[in-house]
């Protein structure tokens, strides 16, 4: 369960988020849509604690995250799959995955089990386990990013634009992989610019614009793609 209650955040004196609220029930998959510079990434950074909150609260599984350092949040079930498919480029695929389990590094048996589970989910990573992560293709690196997050045994997983800079066929593969994560009982927040992908897999959509939630709707409410795009592209004036 992830809950943002009226959070305001920014850098220095510049405020980016002006009261963002959203709630994802356990096992829910919610998409946060918005263009560049609307506050999507800042929202994720605020959840992870990389950007300090000026007001409001972030709650993960009923626990207030206030005062908890970013590096301590991995141990509390919160994990981010970062934008740009960032990996430890000079380290092998397998070492990258192991790093995801850093906060429970004493649990050797558990790590071995989780490693096998990631390889079963992404067989491509098993083939490439000895390769340096920097040599992977974009799609493989996205799988690696997701796999690394899974190694932390998260309950809430945040995905920052997993479809960015990938070929349509690969995007489909990644979308399927994300759907597969629901079976693990994860609470998922998908931040995207790709409306089509979000409509395909999410059960609830939020549109963010100018650091505020401009629109909120359940998927399957007969929502029209054109209506959504109007919000998303900013054709609609703020209410």
């Amino acid at each position: 369960m992830l809950k943002l209650d009226n959070i305001e955040a920014g850098y220095g004196n510049t405020r980016i988020l002006h009261g963002v609220s959203l709630e994802i029930p356990k096992r829910g998959l919610v998409a946060l849509l918005g263009g560049n510079g609307t506050g999507k990434s800042t929202t994720l950074k605020a959840i992870m604690g990389l950007v300090g909150l000026q007001s409001g609260t972030v709650t993960v599984d009923g626990r207030d995250m206030a005062g908890i350092a970013p590096e301590a949040r991995a141990g509390l079930g919160l994990s981010l799959v970062p934008q740009g498919k960032e990996a430890f480029g000079a380290m092998s695929v397998e070492d990258n995955l192991r790093m995801g389990a850093y906060h429970r590094r004493k649990d050797r048996a558990g790590i071995a089990i989780d490693l096998e589970a990631v390889y079963t989910r992404f067989p491509r990573l098993k083939e490439r386990r000895r390769v340096a992560a920097g040599m992977l293709s974009g799609g493989e690196r996205q799988m690696l990013s997701i796999g690394r997050s899974l190694m932390s045994r998260p309950s809430v997983l945040l995905l920052d634009e997993p479809s960015a800079a990938l070929a349509p066929k690969i995007v489909e593969e990644i979308a399927e992989a994300i759907l597969g994560l629901r079976e693990l009982g994860l609470t998922l927040l998908l931040v995207e610019q790709n409306v089509g992908m979000a409509l395909d897999i999410a059960d609830r959509l939020y549109v963010i614009r100018g650091g505020r939630i401009a629109h909120e709707t359940a998927v399957g409410d007969g929502i029209a793609m054109s209506e959504l795009q109007e919000f998303y592209l900013g054709g609609h004036q703020d209410a």
Binding site: E71, A72, A74, A87, F88, M91
Partner: peptide
């Protein structure tokens, strides 16, 4: 693990922190 956390921090400091490594 100590050595790997050093290398991780050198390569991707933010991701390393997200993994729970203390700067």
């Amino acid at each position: 693990w100590v050595g790997m956390s050093l290398r991780a921090m050198a390569q991707q400091p933010t991701v390393a922190r997200m993994c729970g490594i203390r700067v």
